[in-house]
Protein backbone atom coordinates (compact mmCIF):
# COMPACT_ATOMS: atom_id res chain seq x y z
CA UNK A 1 0.00 0.00 0.00
CA UNK A 2 2.86 2.37 0.74
CA UNK A 3 4.66 1.55 -2.49
CA UNK A 4 3.43 4.44 -4.63
CA UNK A 5 4.85 7.11 -2.35
CA UNK A 6 8.19 5.36 -2.09
CA UNK A 7 9.19 5.60 -5.74
CA UNK A 8 10.64 9.05 -6.18
CA UNK A 9 12.82 8.02 -9.14
CA UNK A 10 9.88 7.84 -11.49
CA UNK A 11 8.58 11.28 -10.64
CA UNK A 12 11.84 12.96 -11.63
CA UNK A 13 10.84 13.47 -15.26
CA UNK A 14 7.33 14.69 -14.51
CA UNK A 15 6.23 18.11 -15.62
CA UNK A 16 4.65 20.55 -13.18
CA UNK A 17 1.20 19.85 -14.53
CA UNK A 18 1.68 16.17 -13.79
CA UNK A 19 2.74 16.97 -10.21
CA UNK A 20 -0.60 18.66 -9.87
CA UNK A 21 -2.88 16.06 -11.51
CA UNK A 22 -1.00 13.16 -9.91
CA UNK A 23 -2.77 13.59 -6.58
CA UNK A 24 -6.20 13.91 -8.07
CA UNK A 25 -6.52 10.62 -9.95
CA UNK A 26 -3.41 8.51 -10.37
CA UNK A 27 -2.28 8.72 -6.75
CA UNK A 28 -5.51 9.83 -5.13
CA UNK A 29 -4.73 9.93 -1.39
CA UNK A 30 -7.90 8.13 -0.36
CA UNK A 31 -8.60 5.63 -3.11
CA UNK A 32 -5.07 4.82 -4.26
CA UNK A 33 -2.57 5.68 -1.52
CA UNK A 34 -5.12 4.98 1.24
CA UNK A 35 -3.50 7.55 3.51
CA UNK A 36 -5.24 9.56 6.20
CA UNK A 37 -8.36 7.42 6.38
CA UNK A 38 -9.30 8.52 9.91
CA UNK A 39 -11.08 11.73 8.79
CA UNK A 40 -12.32 9.87 5.71
CA UNK A 41 -14.32 7.59 7.97
CA UNK A 42 -15.12 9.92 10.83
CA UNK A 43 -16.29 13.27 9.51
CA UNK A 44 -17.91 12.42 6.18
CA UNK A 45 -21.46 12.67 7.53
CA UNK A 46 -22.59 15.72 5.56
CA UNK A 47 -21.41 17.20 2.28
CA UNK A 48 -20.24 20.39 3.95
CA UNK A 49 -18.21 18.56 6.56
CA UNK A 50 -16.44 16.45 3.94
CA UNK A 51 -15.70 19.42 1.72
CA UNK A 52 -14.57 21.59 4.65
CA UNK A 53 -12.26 18.93 6.05
CA UNK A 54 -10.80 18.35 2.57
CA UNK A 55 -10.10 22.05 2.10
CA UNK A 56 -8.54 22.38 5.57
CA UNK A 57 -6.25 19.43 4.85
CA UNK A 58 -5.42 20.86 1.41
CA UNK A 59 -4.36 24.16 2.98
CA UNK A 60 -2.15 22.36 5.49
CA UNK A 61 -0.63 20.23 2.70
CA UNK A 62 0.24 23.22 0.55
CA UNK A 63 1.69 25.22 3.46
CA UNK A 64 3.71 22.38 4.94
CA UNK A 65 5.00 21.25 1.54
CA UNK A 66 6.18 24.79 0.78
CA UNK A 67 7.94 25.26 4.12
CA UNK A 68 9.57 21.84 4.06
CA UNK A 69 10.73 22.34 0.51
CA UNK A 70 12.27 25.72 1.37
CA UNK A 71 14.01 24.36 4.47
CA UNK A 72 15.00 20.97 3.01
CA UNK A 73 18.74 21.81 2.83
CA UNK A 74 18.86 22.84 6.48
CA UNK A 75 17.21 19.76 7.93
CA UNK A 76 19.62 17.07 9.19
CA UNK A 77 18.45 13.63 8.13
CA UNK A 78 18.27 12.13 11.61
CA UNK A 79 15.88 14.73 13.03
CA UNK A 80 13.85 15.29 9.87
CA UNK A 81 10.65 13.70 11.22
CA UNK A 82 10.76 15.93 14.31
CA UNK A 83 11.29 18.99 12.14
CA UNK A 84 8.53 17.97 9.73
CA UNK A 85 6.07 17.49 12.57
CA UNK A 86 6.99 20.87 14.05
CA UNK A 87 6.31 22.52 10.70
CA UNK A 88 3.10 20.56 10.08
CA UNK A 89 1.79 21.28 13.59
CA UNK A 90 2.40 24.98 13.06
CA UNK A 91 0.55 24.93 9.72
CA UNK A 92 -2.37 23.09 11.33
CA UNK A 93 -2.55 25.60 14.18
CA UNK A 94 -2.53 28.44 11.67
CA UNK A 95 -5.35 26.86 9.67
CA UNK A 96 -7.24 26.18 12.91
CA UNK A 97 -7.01 29.81 14.03
CA UNK A 98 -8.08 31.08 10.61
CA UNK A 99 -11.08 28.72 10.56
CA UNK A 100 -12.07 29.71 14.09
CA UNK A 101 -12.01 33.35 13.05
CA UNK A 102 -13.69 33.20 9.66
CA UNK A 103 -15.71 29.96 9.43
CA UNK A 104 -16.78 29.35 13.05
CA UNK A 105 -19.68 27.07 12.09
CA UNK A 106 -17.51 24.75 10.06
CA UNK A 107 -14.90 24.80 12.82
CA UNK A 108 -17.56 23.76 15.31
CA UNK A 109 -18.75 20.93 13.08
CA UNK A 110 -15.27 19.49 12.50
CA UNK A 111 -14.13 19.98 16.11
CA UNK A 112 -11.27 17.74 17.21
CA UNK A 113 -10.54 16.56 13.66
CA UNK A 114 -8.88 19.85 12.76
CA UNK A 115 -6.04 19.51 15.29
CA UNK A 116 -5.80 15.84 14.32
CA UNK A 117 -4.66 16.83 10.81
CA UNK A 118 -1.20 16.98 12.43
CA UNK A 119 -1.13 13.19 12.62
CA UNK A 120 -2.74 12.64 9.22
CA UNK A 121 -0.10 10.47 7.59
CA UNK A 122 -0.95 11.97 4.19
CA UNK A 123 0.68 15.25 5.23
CA UNK A 124 3.80 13.62 6.65
CA UNK A 125 3.82 11.19 3.70
CA UNK A 126 3.98 14.00 1.14
CA UNK A 127 6.67 15.79 3.14
CA UNK A 128 8.79 12.65 3.24
CA UNK A 129 8.14 11.43 -0.30
CA UNK A 130 7.98 14.69 -2.19
CA UNK A 131 8.65 18.04 -0.52
CA UNK A 132 12.02 17.12 0.99
CA UNK A 133 13.35 16.20 -2.46
CA UNK A 134 11.70 18.64 -4.86
CA UNK A 135 11.59 22.35 -5.57
CA UNK A 136 9.25 24.79 -3.87
CA UNK A 137 6.90 25.27 -6.83
CA UNK A 138 6.60 21.56 -7.58
CA UNK A 139 5.97 20.85 -3.89
CA UNK A 140 3.25 23.47 -3.70
CA UNK A 141 1.58 21.95 -6.77
CA UNK A 142 1.90 18.46 -5.33
CA UNK A 143 0.31 19.63 -2.08
CA UNK A 144 -2.49 21.36 -3.95
CA UNK A 145 -3.14 18.33 -6.18
CA UNK A 146 -3.12 15.92 -3.25
CA UNK A 147 -5.35 18.31 -1.30
CA UNK A 148 -7.85 18.56 -4.12
CA UNK A 149 -7.78 14.79 -4.61
CA UNK A 150 -8.44 14.36 -0.90
CA UNK A 151 -11.25 16.94 -0.98
CA UNK A 152 -12.90 15.24 -3.96
CA UNK A 153 -12.86 11.81 -2.37
CA UNK A 154 -14.07 13.11 1.02
CA UNK A 155 -16.86 15.07 -0.64
CA UNK A 156 -17.83 12.05 -2.73
CA UNK A 157 -18.09 9.79 0.32
CA UNK A 158 -19.96 12.50 2.26
CA UNK A 159 -22.50 13.01 -0.51
CA UNK A 160 -23.26 9.29 -0.71
CA UNK A 161 -23.55 8.98 3.06
CA UNK A 162 -25.65 12.11 3.45
CA UNK A 163 -28.10 11.11 0.72
CA UNK A 164 -28.51 7.54 1.99
CA UNK A 165 -28.31 8.25 5.70
CA UNK A 166 -29.99 11.62 6.07
CA UNK A 167 -31.97 11.98 2.84
CA UNK A 168 -30.41 15.31 1.97
CA UNK A 169 -27.85 16.75 -0.44
CA UNK A 170 -25.69 19.49 1.14
CA UNK A 171 -28.44 19.88 3.79
CA UNK A 172 -31.19 20.31 1.13
CA UNK A 173 -33.76 17.60 1.81
CA UNK A 174 -34.31 15.41 -1.26
CA UNK A 175 -36.53 12.65 0.05
CA UNK A 176 -40.23 13.21 0.75
CA UNK A 177 -41.09 14.20 4.31
CA UNK A 178 -42.03 11.21 6.43
CA UNK A 179 -39.80 8.78 4.53
CA UNK A 180 -37.07 7.22 6.63
CA UNK A 181 -33.49 7.40 5.37
CA UNK A 182 -31.05 4.56 6.04
CA UNK A 183 -29.64 5.89 9.28
CA UNK A 184 -26.89 3.27 9.21
CA UNK A 185 -25.03 5.25 6.57
CA UNK A 186 -24.24 8.24 8.76
CA UNK A 187 -23.19 6.01 11.63
CA UNK A 188 -19.67 4.53 11.70
CA UNK A 189 -20.54 1.21 9.96
CA UNK A 190 -21.94 3.20 7.03
CA UNK A 191 -18.58 4.92 6.68
CA UNK A 192 -16.83 1.60 6.16
CA UNK A 193 -19.50 0.35 3.77
CA UNK A 194 -19.47 3.51 1.66
CA UNK A 195 -15.69 3.70 1.64
CA UNK A 196 -15.35 0.05 0.60
CA UNK A 197 -18.00 0.22 -2.11
CA UNK A 198 -16.66 3.47 -3.59
CA UNK A 199 -13.16 1.95 -3.48
CA UNK A 200 -14.44 -0.98 -5.55
CA UNK A 201 -16.14 1.37 -8.03
CA UNK A 202 -12.91 3.38 -8.38
CA UNK A 203 -10.87 0.25 -9.01
CA UNK A 204 -13.36 -0.98 -11.59
CA UNK A 205 -13.29 2.39 -13.36
CA UNK A 206 -9.50 2.47 -13.28
CA UNK A 207 -9.30 -0.98 -14.82
CA UNK A 208 -11.80 -0.07 -17.49
CA UNK A 209 -10.05 3.13 -18.55
CA UNK A 210 -6.56 1.72 -17.85
CA UNK A 211 -5.37 4.63 -15.71
Amino acid sequence: MLKPILRPGKEESMSNLKHFTNGIIKENPTFVLVLGTCPVLAITTTGFNGFGMGMATAMVLVLSNIFISILKNYIPDKVRIAVFITIIATCVSVVELVMKAFTPDLYKALGIFIPLIVVNCLVLGRAEAFAQKKGVFASALDGLGMGIGFTISLTLISIVREILGNGSFFTIPIIPAGAHPMLLFILPPGAFLTFGLLFAVMNALKRKFKI
Binding site: L71, Y74, I75, V79, A82, T86, I87, T90
Partner: peptide, 13 residues
Protein backbone atom coordinates in the same frame (compact mmCIF):
# COMPACT_ATOMS: atom_id res chain seq x y z
CA UNK B 1 18.33 23.16 13.03
CA UNK B 2 15.59 21.86 15.27
CA UNK B 3 15.67 24.80 17.67
CA UNK B 4 15.95 27.48 14.99
CA UNK B 5 13.07 26.02 12.97
CA UNK B 6 10.96 25.62 16.13
CA UNK B 7 11.63 29.21 17.08
CA UNK B 8 10.75 30.50 13.64
CA UNK B 9 7.55 28.44 13.58
CA UNK B 10 6.57 29.62 17.07
CA UNK B 11 7.11 33.23 16.03
CA UNK B 12 5.00 32.74 12.90
CA UNK B 13 2.25 31.08 14.89
Amino acid sequence: SLSLISMAMAAGL
